[in-house]
Amino acid sequence: MRIIQEVNKLNEYVLQKMEHSFLKEYVNVPQLNQDKCLITYLLLAESGYEGEELQELYAAVMLVQCALDTHETILKIRDSHIKERQLTVLAGDYYSSLYYFMLSVCEDVSLIRALSLGIQDVNENKMRLFYSKHIKPEEVTNSIKGMEAGILNRVARHLKKEQYIPFITEFLFVSATSHCPDSLFSDYHLQIKNDVLLARHKLKTQKQPLSLKPVMEKRMRGLLEGPHYLLPEEG
């Protein structure tokens, strides 16, 4: 429970960083993905970060995610909503500049590099998924995994926690596809159906951060035992 409270407090800090009186008139602040929040926090905590240092690094990672999520909404904006479109572009750029600024103040060039590589991974995977003429079923799943886990896998590698990468990848894949009807991936549900089953199976055996246990196990149970859009109800 303490972890959830800590993460909520950190999220308030992230939202405070993103606060801009004019932007908020036109741009919805993206929802912080709770699974990504938890994984980021626990990776940092398990690496020995605490206090202000953890807060800054956590905020930087979440700002990157928010920047990408903000830009993802661009096609949903109606042509007539000009200011909304313009400010959606600029809000994403602004959040992105904030992560770089915060990490440069923390003098953490290595994490700056890791996140910039993560952003590249995410955008290349988005292009592969949404703008390829012929995409094979296995490429669909890999692209979704790359889009969802691209940032955090780079963070894990940066923190020398590579052992958790398979867990993060499968976990975020199952999580992202669990709400398929409204998700970005709804067009691909037939291709990824079996892969979701496989990922759920893998998740039961994969190593996850030790400190994740109390909170993550509950979330894992929810994800593995709860309803999933792509999978038929048992019985």
Partner: peptide, 30 residues
């Protein structure tokens, strides 16, 4: 479309920052 432009722009910004990460003077990043 606008989405490709967003992805391309974000990709290029990230590439630029990756390139800068080879510069070790912290003042340059700040």
């Amino acid at each position: 479309d606008n989405k490709v432009a967003m992805y391309t722009g974000d990709f290029l910004f990230a590439k630029a920052i990756e390139l800068m990460s080879d510069i070790h003077q912290i003042a340059a990043h700040q």
